[in-house]
Nucleic acid binder design. Structure first.
Length: 309
DNA sequence: CACCAGGCGACTC
DNA sequence: GAGTCGCATGGT
């Protein structure tokens, strides 16, 4: 099966900052390119001077799914112009200009951030990888070295071993498991992916969705506050995780997730040596940064995580 | 070995 | 309402 490729023309796009800024947890950098899975597509992305080169393992029906995911059609200049003109924002933008907010699948995003609480990003990546290996559908990939198609999938997988390819010659990857597949798993199976106390939260969310009692698509029609209220009815989903999903999957640009890094950024950069309560800080967050506050938040987050301490 | 990690929820006062 | 604490697990 021949691969397909395209050059997405886009300027002011920092692929590394975008894919490695804690929005999505499945991208890997190797040999100068980023490889990952979007829906049922394995993809290899390479930053080029005039855009992003994309390669898939098989034929695809157009590329709109990829433009949507990467948000290449967003006018970044217009977004950045809405940011407040203050020193912290100027520094954050200068540090990672070209960073975009992705538009991810709601279920994958929700599940990933349910797994994120009190975990470092490297560990979230590990848990998500294990989850996909155990429960996700196999997906063909391109060979690493010379672009040849991968070997056929093995006919039978061992039930208790992760379904890995040989580490030196991966021949398939995995889709993110569906809610139905997670709902059919046991809590102890999920715990074997090292997610600990988050397992019952993920399982309960998957079951509600699989049973049709929670409609992720319906959230698109709701205003931000209503969609947030719906999401936080899920166990293990509070305001922070809900805002991550609303920003990274639904495109609610004014959602402003406040985690430990962003809270540190707000306190250190905007209120140094001052005692400010949580409530006042949250009020500042949702009023100071404008209509694309979520974008501003992601710049602050990445800036704080990557700057020398 | 403490201490912390893109939190949440139950429990105090 | 605002603090405090346990929750699994692994990295530093």
């Amino acid at each position: 099966m021949a691969g397909t490729e395209i050059l997405l023309r886009v300027r002011d796009y920092d692929l590394a900052a975008t894919l490695d800024s804690g929005q999505a947890f499945r991208w890997q950098f190797q040999d100068g390119s980023w490889t990952g899975v979007i829906g049922r597509h394995w993809v290899r992305l390479t930053q080029k001077r005039d855009g992003i080169r994309a390669e898939t393992a098989g034929p695809v029906h157009g590329w709109q799914w990829l433009r949507d995911y990467l948000q290449t059609d967003v006018d970044l200049d217009a977004v950045l112009k809405t940011f407040p003109d203050d020193a912290p924002m100027r520094d954050a933008v200068a540090a990672c200009r070209g960073l975009r907010v992705l538009r991810q699948d709601p279920w994958e995003c929700l599940a990933s951030f349910i797994l994120s609480s009190t975990k470092q990003i490297v560990q979230i990546r590990q848990i998500v990888t294990l989850l996909c290996e155990r429960f996700g559908e196999p997906i063909p990939v391109l060979g690493l070295k010379n672009g040849r198609a991968g070997s056929p999938l093995p006919a039978v997988f061992s039930s208790d071993e992760p379904r890995r390819g040989r580490s030196d010659a991966p021949y398939h990857s995995f889709a993110f498991p569906t809610p139905q597949r997670i709902a059919a798993a046991s809590e102890s199976e999920l715990r074997s992916c090292k997610m600990g106390f988050r397992a019952p939260h993920l399982l309960a969310a998957a079951r509600r969705i699989a049973e049709g009692k929670f409609d992720l698509e319906r959230l698109r029609q709701l205003p931000l506050a209503g969609a947030r209220a719906e999401l936080t009815t899920l166990r293990g989903v509070g305001d922070k995780i809900a805002d991550c999903v609303l920003l990274f999957a639904y495109g609610f640009d004014s959602a402003f997730p406040v985690d430990v890094w962003v809270e540190r950024a707000l306190r250190e950069l905007y209120f140094p040596r001052r005692r400010v309560g949580d409530k006042r800080l949250r009020h500042f967050a949702v009023t100071h940064f404008g209509p694309h506050a979520g974008y501003a938040q992601q710049y602050l987050f990445h800036y704080m995580r990557t700057k020398v301490k």
